[in-house]
Design a protein around this nucleic acid. Structure first.
Lengths: 369, 369
DNA sequence: ATGAAAGCGCTAACAT
DNA sequence: ATGTTAGCGCTTTCAT
């Protein structure tokens, strides 16, 4: 909330003449009126106390059959539904799991789809919150989001690509996907970035490339470090040297990849292939190449990482390292739920899943010469 | 919350020994401890009242410089962040906009991406809530979600494919995307389904198909009705008759499309082409066809609707009718914000955007004979 | 069986 | 400049 429009306090003033006002007699039928129907409205209309309504709604014992049905009827008629906010302030449990992301982009939404599918039948509901908002707080958004929602509103959280080490003693159990640090701190789920990066780089080497660039990911993420390491290992194993000017950072984002992509391609001794740390930046490299009049894959081979739907949909379809995003999301959900259910120590479980290379049309042997 | 795991009241019992307990002296540095840091903790540690902390945090006037900085320091040290829940219960405004969906699938997440991009720089944050959860309440989830979040937590909502007419006199402004009804009721954004469906069907007719099936969408949605109508109009305009047994319903969902897809394809007089009401069901038709040993597009042409990334990523890439999903999301966001800012009548604005045909590899002329 | 009252964390009048 | 108080909508003792 760095730069809120912030109504200077004028606030909206509905409810005027609402059910709570002196004018409206008790038991009046639902008239057209603004504002939420609260438990008080129901109580008034049913001629009972709010406590009784609460008991009925929550199926507690100690309410007469007749009273209960009358209340239920009013609830139905008024379309009452308890406020998640008020309830969660009072209760300890909301049966809502939060998915905290910096931004809704292909990677996080793919995970969201997976988690959404996995949550069916668990009795939990999903609340995805994007708190990365303004660029100012690109870092530390997860702590903010967690503080704002945790303890109330959500029973646990799955955090996607946190910018910092998530403190373990949070108010609610937390599982991080593609975490800041490696296997330490809170529970994490990720894929084998080192092996994946080797897969990608070896693929390019096998095709005959020797001058291979790397567009790195977000410096703060373990995954980015491992992908660069895997690239370097594969190069060195093949007896190839890495030209330092060919290793740049794209921050996993298209906008941040623009300059480095130009730097990589807009020169006579440009690489014949680029391994980018994720699909979004790889796709941007392809775009820049095409703007520069280079054909992909004839003049430039590009490999990405993630295998989001956009990779396969691109022109040409992107060769990439597939992360098992659906398994990762499902696993993360399973882990938070386990943490919520058992008041177990919120530590240590780290799941790392394997990756595989998906060869598509953005890679080919370098042109002779 | 149809079938919650529901801790029978045992609840979690952290906070024991927390900052609020008698044991912890005021001003103690942040010790390892469970539970959220509340405004009370900050007040205690800073030696001021909670009201003062609130004023400082919210930048209100009437606090001495010295006090303010001391409080801020404690806030920083303790990592305090106000609870969205508590705050929104008290305030009228949260600067959070809700995106209400039944489920996170390609269509809703694509809109989410668009809205996320559009929200940048507006000062609002996004909260996506999936309340469709259990199949039992596949209908009416939006009313439930709106009631649970509205009035508190969110200042306005974008509802994706509601199952019912969203009541206009809700607690917060609402814009519906792909609404239940046509241009009536609350503000809506959609695409021109009638024209889109004609585009799809005419494309198949132009290729030479005459026996064309239609896999319809969700009966309750205006868009589904219009797509069927467009299909029928195009057929009739071309002088082709519609075989009633070739018009079935897939509910926009792969799982619900399975039976009708088999019904369509597992027969000697099967159609040579199918127009499905959205990409997900079209993709499922392709799958079923391939299971049945039919080649797409040689033995069967398939056209979808939406143009989600999955359509282009499919094998073969799906010919489809593209909705301008990004414009639609951005437009919906603009509309809710406008409604929030001006206490204008929450009615009537309806934006309908054009569609276009995207020809890919899932359609071809029928085989001779 | 029912209701009165306290309190969850916070903000906003209203004292002081 | 600061603190006190009331109350947002709800759940939950605890009386009655």
């Amino acid at each position: 909330m760095s730069t809120p429009p912030d109504a200077p306090e004028g606030e909206r003033l509905n409810r005027a003449g609402g059910p709570g006002s002196p004018g409206s007699g008790a038991g009046e039928p639902a008239v057209v009126r603004p504002g939420r129907v609260t438990i008080t409205d129901v109580a008034r209309a049913a001629g009972v106390s709010v406590a009784t309504v609460s008991k009925v709604v929550n199926g507690r014992y100690g309410v007469a059959q007749a009273t209960a049905s009358r209340v239920l009827e009013v609830v139905d008629q008024l379309g009452y539904e308890s406020s998640l906010v008020a309830r969660s302030l009072r209760r300890r449990r909301t049966n809502v799991i939060g998915v905290l992301v910096a931004e809704f982009e292909p990677f996080s939404t793919e995970l969201l789809k997976a988690i959404s599918k996995a949550v069916e039948g668990t009795g939990y509901e999903l609340l995805a919150y994007s708190g990365g908002g303004d660029t100012s707080d690109r870092v530390g958004w997860e702590r903010r989001s967690l503080s704002r929602l945790g303890g109330t509103l959500i029973d646990g959280a799955v955090i996607v690509t946190p910018t910092v080490q998530v403190p373990m003693n949070e108010s609610v159990p937390v599982v991080a996907i593609d975490p800041h640090t490696g296997p330490t701190g809170p529970a994490t789920v990720d894929s084998d970035s080192l092996a994946g990066a080797r897969l990608a780089t070896e693929h390019l080497i096998k095709l005959g490339h020797t001058r291979i660039g790397h567009l790195g990911g977000r410096r703060d993420l373990e995954s980015a470090r491992l992908r660069e390491l895997g690239y370097r290992q594969a190069m060195s194993d093949a007896g190839l040297t890495v030209d330092p000017s060919l290793v740049l950072t794209g921050g996993y984002r298209p906008d941040l990849s623009d300059r480095p992509a130009h730097e990589l391609l807009d020169r006579p001794d440009r690489p014949t292939a680029v391994f980018a740390a994720n699909d979004l930046s790889a796709l941007h490299v392809v775009e820049v190449a095409q703007e520069l009049g280079l054909r992909v894959p004839e003049d430039l081979s590009v490999v990405g990482y993630d295998d989001v739907p956009e990779a396969a949909a691109a022109q040409p379809p992107l060769t990439t390292v597939a992360q098992p995003l659906h398994e990762m999301g499902a696993e993360a959900l399973r882990m938070v739920i386990a943490l919520i259910d058992s008041e177990a120590p919120r530590t240590g479980h780290h799941t790392r899943l394997p990756t595989r290379l998906v060869e598509r049309a953005s890679t080919a042997p370098p042109r002779a010469g």
